Every structure is written in structure tokens, then in C-alpha cells.
Amino acid sequence: MTHEVLIYPDRQALVAAAFDLMVARIHTAVDERQRCTIALSGGSTPQPLYAALAQADLPWDRIQIYWGDERYVPPSHPDSNYGMTKRIWLDVAPIPAANIHPMPTNFADPQAAAAEYDRQILADFGLEAGSMPAFDLILLGMGDDGHTASLFPHTAALSVRDRLVTVGEKDGQPRITFTYPLIDRARSTIFLISGASKQSALGEIFAPTGDATIYPARGIQPQGELLWLLDADAGKDLAIAC
């Protein structure tokens, strides 16, 4: 496993580096496997990255887009990760509609929505139930509390090991999220983290010992490449022992 921490002087440099890495990983996946499967994150940090990717010259018909987590709101809701990505990136780039796979949020029961996305991923990858697909690239963010995707501290989703997708929750509100085992199967996992408010959680995540139930991003241990991309505000005074 490649585990690397890269710190950039500002958010603009961080986004530029993430852009170059994603473009390179996309081309590698398409060259080696004829397609690239990507799971995206929400939040404000990746928005300029998505805007840049919308203008890139990429093999759009070979790229399959998924999401690592989603708030349980309609796509038109301002908090929708899919809705944000659609406006900034997917409505701009010439990617086929059939290649875009948003998490369903129209089920009365979020557990049913999670099960449907689980089934959809397995079908898309041509796998049987109980299998664990390997995404080419999973993009993750991290909250001030150390959560990633919708894996929040001290929540039941952290212990789910037998499914690809489960229900997370924040402040009593359900979310749909990838599980640790699915994230850990990725060929390349990239964290994109910006801002001084992330320093405290990062210090705990990179400490020699710690508890992933308190800082869930610490629990991401992929078999493939793991890159932590930080701006200087987030990475300031970070003592890293990787």
C-alpha cells in the first residue's frame, strides 16, 4: 500500500494537484481496464476541482461516476452532493447520462435505498452478492470532527462490514454511505482537505495510537494507494508518522 501525505501552500495549489492526480488515474484506469470507476465526495472543498474537471479533455464515455455518500434529500435540494456535482461538473462535461449513478434518496426507508445502491454497484461491476468491487478512484473529504463520507463518530455505520453501502446519520438525519470495506478495496483513495479547522482532527488521525470510532477517517486503510492532500492551513505543524 502506498500511503503518502502531500501538503500544498494554498487551496488553489491543492486543487491543481488533485486535478492532475485524478486525470492521471483516469487515463491509467482506461488504458488498463477500458473504463474508470470513480466515487465522489460532497462539500465545498472539491467544488473547484469539479469545475476544472468539467473542462478537461477526458474519455468521458469510459468514466462511470458514483458517490461515496449522500444526504437523504432530493437531488434538487441545496444540500444534495449529487445536485452540486451535477451543476458544477456533470451538466457541463459531455459525459453520457447512463454513466452517472447517483445514490437513491426517494425510498421511504433509507435502509432500502442503501440496499438498492449496494445491488446497483454489484450489478454494474458484474459481481455476485457478497463480493467486494474495487473502484479505480475514491475521493474523500474530512470534517472538523474527523468523519469521512458519512461515517460519523460513534455511529453504527462504522461497524458495518458485510455490505457495500449502509445508512449513516448526523444529528438524527439519515445519510447513505459507503462502508469501510468498500472504500478499502479502492485502487486509489484520495483525501482532499483544506482549512485550519481540520488541524486538530488530523493530529489525532496521524497520531501513533488512536480510536477510529472517535475519528473515523483514521479507519480508512485501503489495500491500494492512499494519498492525503492537504493545504498548508490544514497541515500546519502536523507531525506525520506514516
Results as ranks from 00 to 15, higher is better:
213 T>D: 13
19 F>D: 11
195 G>H: 04
209 T>M: 10
47 Q>F: 08
99 N>E: 15
40 L>P: 03
132 M>A: 08
118 D>E: 14
3 H>F: 15
116 E>R: 08
158 L>W: 13
6 L>N: 13
70 E>I: 00
116 E>G: 06
88 I>A: 11
79 D>P: 01
115 A>P: 07
16 A>D: 09
181 P>N: 07
76 S>K: 07
214 I>G: 06
85 T>S: 10
241 A>F: 10
52 A>I: 10
170 K>V: 09
200 S>N: 12
75 P>I: 09
129 A>P: 15
137 L>F: 13
69 D>L: 00
202 L>F: 13
167 V>T: 04
138 I>E: 00
47 Q>I: 12
38 I>F: 09
15 V>I: 11
24 A>V: 08
202 L>M: 11
200 S>I: 06
142 M>K: 08
187 R>N: 10
117 Y>G: 02
130 G>Y: 09
156 A>L: 13
56 A>Q: 08
195 G>T: 08
144 D>S: 08
182 L>W: 01
220 I>F: 01
215 Y>E: 04
92 V>C: 09
142 M>T: 03
163 R>C: 01
47 Q>R: 10
59 P>S: 03
138 I>P: 00
220 I>S: 00
171 D>S: 11
78 P>S: 13
186 A>Y: 00
70 E>C: 02
114 A>E: 00
182 L>Y: 01
98 A>E: 09
1 M>L: 14
182 L>H: 01
81 N>M: 03
171 D>E: 13
139 L>S: 03
226 L>R: 05
80 S>K: 04
149 A>H: 01
130 G>V: 14
161 R>E: 12
36 C>R: 14
241 A>K: 15
64 Q>N: 09
87 R>H: 08
121 I>T: 05
11 R>F: 11
27 H>P: 07
57 D>V: 12
40 L>V: 13
76 S>V: 09
109 D>S: 06
130 G>S: 14
61 D>Q: 14
90 L>Q: 03
161 R>T: 12
156 A>S: 15
213 T>L: 12
129 A>M: 15
32 E>N: 12
117 Y>N: 07
8 Y>T: 07
60 W>D: 07
240 I>M: 04
197 S>C: 05
89 W>R: 05
90 L>E: 03
208 P>I: 06
101 H>T: 07
34 Q>M: 14
205 I>T: 12
180 Y>I: 07
64 Q>F: 05
190 I>W: 03
115 A>S: 09
194 S>Q: 02
118 D>W: 02
198 K>Q: 05
216 P>E: 04
147 H>F: 07
103 M>L: 10
127 L>Q: 14
105 T>Q: 00
58 L>E: 05
107 F>S: 03
134 A>F: 05
240 I>F: 06
161 R>D: 09
169 E>Y: 07
30 V>K: 07
84 M>S: 10
8 Y>L: 13
239 A>W: 09
119 R>W: 12
110 P>A: 03
33 R>M: 11
145 D>E: 02
61 D>K: 12
